[in-house]
């Protein structure tokens, strides 16, 4: 089954065109890594899929489980089963993690035609999800991401992923800024959430995380286009030869 079908996607930020015609098809259960140097457009792709207000789509189409994704508001995309793990998760002082996550969880449940859960039942739901990121319940009484370390913020994103059970999860540089222990926990969490019905797009600069989350396909972005696609061996080749190699290959100025 086709989960996501991107055709000739173009997007701008202000006057600058960042995505210059991206085409990519992802089937249910597949993990696609999107790699590329800084400024290649890989994070933009992740954010455009979730409907980030800083970008304007100027061309192309994105079909998510048969529906026109670009026609949906960000919350509709989430309710339809799309999840973006932010590169820079937002701090919301004044709202506890428990409140925020339950609000999100109930919205997603409502969209699926399921009953909302009260705070007590929600704690039971959480217990299993917290295990996925090797966390205790203390984190839930803290304000959303406020004063969290870089690693805690990323774990919180994966906790939300686990809770909201999306069909397609987009991880935007989830490995950036993580030490090896945090990376192991975060990647371990993602692996526990892999299933035949769920697809992933793993956006990353480095091959490192792909040692833990082994992709089915690897795409290299440069200058707003996919310049090379392959299997996991491509990630290793990039690690060995650097991005200059692909950029040179395709005439993209560094």
């Amino acid at each position: 089954m086709t989960m996501l079908d991107i055709q000739d996607l173009r997007a701008t930020a202000g006057d600058a065109e960042i995505l210059k015609g991206i085409s990519l098809t992802i089937n249910a259960g597949e993990v696609h890594a999107v790699m590329g140097p800084n400024g290649s457009g890989k994070s933009t792709l992740a954010q455009v899929l979730a409907g980030h207000p800083s970008y304007t789509v100027t061309g192309g189409s994105v079909t998510f489980m048969g529906n026109d994704l670009l026609d949906m508001e960000p919350e509709e995309r989430a309710r339809a089963g799309l999840f973006l793990a932010f590169q820079y998760p937002v701090e919301i002082p004044g709202v506890t993690n428990a409140y925020f996550l339950r609000a999100a969880y109930n919205e997603i449940r409502k969209a699926r035609g399921e009953e909302e859960v009260d705070p007590m039942d929600f704690l039971d739901v959480l217990e299993a999800k917290l295990k996925i990121v090797e966390w205790g319940p203390e984190i839930m009484s803290r304000a959303v991401n406020a004063g969290f370390s870089g690693g805690e913020k990323k774990r919180n994103e994966i906790l939300q992923l686990a809770l909201l059970e999306p069909r397609l999860a987009v991880l935007d540089e989830t490995d950036s800024g993580l030490d090896i222990d945090a990376l192991r926990i975060v990647a371990g969490g993602v692996n526990k959430l892999r299933s035949t019905g769920r697809s992933f797009i793993v956006v990353t600069h480095y091959q490192r995380m792909l040692n833990y989350i082994v992709p089915d396909h690897v795409h290299v972005l440069a200058g707003g286009r996919i310049v090379k696609s392959g299997d996991k061996a491509l990630a290793h080749e990039l690690e060995a030869r650097g991005y200059e190699w692909v950029e040179a290959l395709h005439g993209v100025p560094a």
Binding site: A50, S54, E75, V90, A104
Partner: peptide, 26 residues
């Protein structure tokens, strides 16, 4: 903050509810 609003909306929380949540948080 537009990005904070987007963050809440990307979790399935509607635009108006996200707005109220952030004002309340403030």
């Amino acid at each position: 903050d537009d990005v904070a609003l987007f963050y809440a909306r990307s979790r399935g929380i509607g635009a108006e509810a996200a707005r109220r949540l952030l004002i309340y948080a403030f």
